[in-house]
Computed example of a mutant assay.
Amino acid sequence: MATMSVELRDEVVACIPSLRAFAASLVGVGDRADDLVQEALVKAWANIGSFKQGTNMKAWLFTILRNTFYSAHRKAKREVQDVDGQYSSALAEHPGQIGHLDFEDFRMALDELPEDQREAVILIGASGFSYEEAAEICGCAIGTMKSRVNRARNRLSEILDVTSADEFGPDRTAHAALTTSSVPTVKLSAMD
């Protein structure tokens, strides 16, 4: 951290009333304005080495204060106020290990499909193409594409031993833990 000369310090101190007035115009009179001025002065002090002697100290400090305000404003727009903890208590995440293992099982099952069925189910289920678009990509009729997707889904169900859409999502232990703590669960549905 650079040292500040007495002249620079006096120049900064002389700008404080103007900084307070500017901060009050941005956030209103009170503690928030004082906090904004304080934060700007701390930043200015930490970066005093970048200030060029002979330039306008007041303009430099106003720029720092303005940038500090807008940075805080952008950050606040991305944050959620949760004073009483109600929002955070409703958040739950399923254990990642199970999902990773399920994905590996799915990937291996996908590899067992014939190439035309694997291609069809990836185009429709994973890439989001319509049956018409997928049929055009593969150079086949729409009915052929629908048939390939249906056979692929049935074969994946057999390989993965899935009998209903209720089997997607958390396992019984995770589901019990989530419902016992009165946290809402998100149910994953089967591919359409």
Rank of each mutant, 00 (worst) to 15 (best):
M1N: 05
A2M: 12
A2V: 04
T3R: 05
M4H: 05
V13I: 08
I16H: 09
S18N: 11
L19R: 13
R20W: 10
S25R: 06
G28S: 01
D31W: 09
D34C: 02
V37K: 05
W45Q: 10
G49Y: 01
M57K: 04
A59C: 09
A76G: 10
R78E: 08
D82F: 03
D84H: 10
D84M: 04
S88G: 04
S88D: 08
A92F: 15
P95G: 13
Q97L: 12
L101C: 04
A109N: 11
A109M: 11
D111Y: 09
P114L: 06
P114S: 02
E115R: 12
E119Q: 15
I122F: 02
L123P: 00
G128T: 05
Y131I: 09
A135N: 06
E136D: 14
G139C: 00
C140T: 05
M145C: 04
K146C: 02
N150R: 08
R151E: 02
I159H: 08
T163I: 03
G169Q: 04
P170K: 01
T173K: 15
H175P: 04
A176H: 14
A177G: 12
T179W: 03
T180W: 07
V183Y: 00
P184Q: 11
S189D: 06
A190G: 00
M191S: 10
D192Q: 04
D192T: 10
